[in-house]
Design a protein around this nucleic acid. Structure first.
Ligand SMILES: NC(=O)c1ccc[n+]([C@@H]2O[C@H](COP(=O)([O-])OP(=O)(O)OC[C@H]3O[C@@H](n4cnc5c(N)ncnc54)[C@H](O)[C@@H]3O)[C@@H](O)[C@H]2O)c1
Ligand SMILES: NC(=O)c1ccc[n+]([C@@H]2O[C@H](COP(=O)([O-])OP(=O)(O)OC[C@H]3O[C@@H](n4cnc5c(N)ncnc54)[C@H](O)[C@@H]3O)[C@@H](O)[C@H]2O)c1
Lengths: 213, 213
DNA sequence: TTATCAATGTGAATCAATAAACAGAAACCC
DNA sequence: GGGTTTCTGTTTATTGATTCACATTGATAA
């Protein structure tokens, strides 16, 4: 299913809508209003309706949106039909947190391999994900048609690992390392740093504190 | 130091500039050009200059920006002069990853307490941070004037913990739980979900893949 | 000394995201 | 059965973020 040029932010919100809807889905509650979704995500109902308009979904005037249908439609838009496979490189605290968090959450997006350099971690299975030696990255990525890599190794190692993964055919990378990476334009790179999030919180907390007397 | 109404995005980038600058800081390299900063963060040099203009920093036409000075100035803007204290609630894999990652990274932003409910974790010290029983949250936050809370407990527990922290006087919350929270307007809330990041990567990776042949 | 070059700094223009405003539809109420 | 309410869907306006375009500067070289 295709919709031309969905705004970047809309894609992000669609993922959030789905997450929220999955959470409230139950026998009793089959429909939801735009203002209910909005409230959960701290945005306006107009924003929600606009996003849904962009993906061509219509709600029921009196009952709102059918939760199941909407979850389904979002899936048809943001998921890949045949599913995408993911690898995590670096099975430290963060790597483990990621794997345990993802476990079974999305049917079209599965972490199917982990890599590390520490012999104690290799050839073991964490939360259903097998851990291999780092020098098998390329081989396993190709074999399993893994298209997405998550990097959670010490930051000095990140550039080399990114390069290896790109050469092996990965199409997207999620980098949790503070080291800025460079990848070719056909690979989508997302970088996240908790320090930036925390500093943002700190900055606006400080600001709020001044504003609210 | 005050600059009125720095754009949200600029604050985020200032944190990133500082991180990148701290990384390249060395004896040999004392100055940096806007295009060098830009390249590291995958943005345009104009963006960088505009942000620096907003914080009132001027570079040297021939040498670029003085790295030390700039790091310093960013600190005076985004950090709080007297420092801010942070608590982490939930010392699982994610909580530990956060604590070990932050350790000693920012002088004005220190994680000084952790909380958990598991007796095995309580009264131990992780990476220099003491772990207390969850029912001491309120007391310890007040005692130590902790103004920022990080939530990394199982998601069902998140709302209750957020409420307790707000009542105890926290001014900002960073929520890693997928559960949407509600806080009063004088508390700044930031929510981050790795699944959204990963789904974004997956979506654009898929899209790129189609575009590039 | 004058031209050239490679940078910064910034007003104006563009582009992207959000919000406001409102028409239209179904249910409900009297 | 007409009026009222409450929601959606969409057009239009506003706000916010980014980029363009170019003036400016000072070093260097011709
Ligand atoms: N971006 C964030 O928000 C954030 C938060 C926490 C940690 N981090 C970063 O994530 C990374 C991991 O953090 P962590 O707390 O899990 O660290 P960690 O030390 O617990 O884990 C790192 C793992 O990588 C493995 N490793 C080391 N070199 C390797 C290599 N060449 N190939 C494969 N595996 C290798 C280690 O054996 C270890 O298991 C660090 O770079 C840290 O800075 C980022
Ligand atoms: N947002 C993200 O990107 C992301 C990524 C990974 C995990 N998570 C979420 O973060 C949370 C923690 O993940 P994790 O992998 O560290 O899980 P975990 O199970 O390893 O850790 C949770 C910790 O919280 C403690 N805890 C449970 N109830 C508590 C309470 N009432 N008070 C204080 N502590 C309590 C547990 O003892 C445990 O130590 C989960 O909600 C998970 O969904 C989020």
């Amino acid at each position: 299913m295709f919709i031309k040029n969905l705004p970047h932010k809309t894609v992000e919100r669609l993922s959030q809508y789905r997450r929220a809807l999955l959470m409230i889905l139950s026998k009793e509650k089959t429909h939801v209003f735009s203002h209910e979704i909005a409230q959960m995500l701290h945005i306006t109902p107009v924003q929600v309706r606009r996003d849904l308009m962009l993906i061509g979904y219509s709600g029921n005037l009196r009952k709102g949106y059918d939760i199941k249908e909407l979850i389904d439609l979002i899936g048809r838009i943001i998921d890949s039909e045949k599913g995408q496979r993911v690898a995590v490189v670096g099975l430290g605290n963060l790597g483990k947190a990621i794997i345990s968090y993802f476990k079974g959450k999305r049917s079209k997006l599965a972490i199917i391999a982990a890599f590390d350099i520490n012999p104690e971690k290799i050839n073991r299975v964490y939360d259903g994900v097998a851990c291999y030696h780092i020098n098998q990255v390329s081989e396993i990525i190709k074999q399993n048609n893994i298209s997405i890599g998550i990097i959670s190794v010490p930051s000095e190692q990140a550039p080399e690992i990114a390069e290896t993964m790109v050469l092996a055919g990965v199409k997207g990378i999620l980098n949790f390392t503070p080291k800025p990476l460079n990848v070719p334009p056909y690979v989508y790179l997302e970088e996240y740093d908790m320090i930036t999030s925390l500093e943002k919180v700190a900055f606006f907390a400080k600001k709020n504190d001044e504003r609210f007397k």
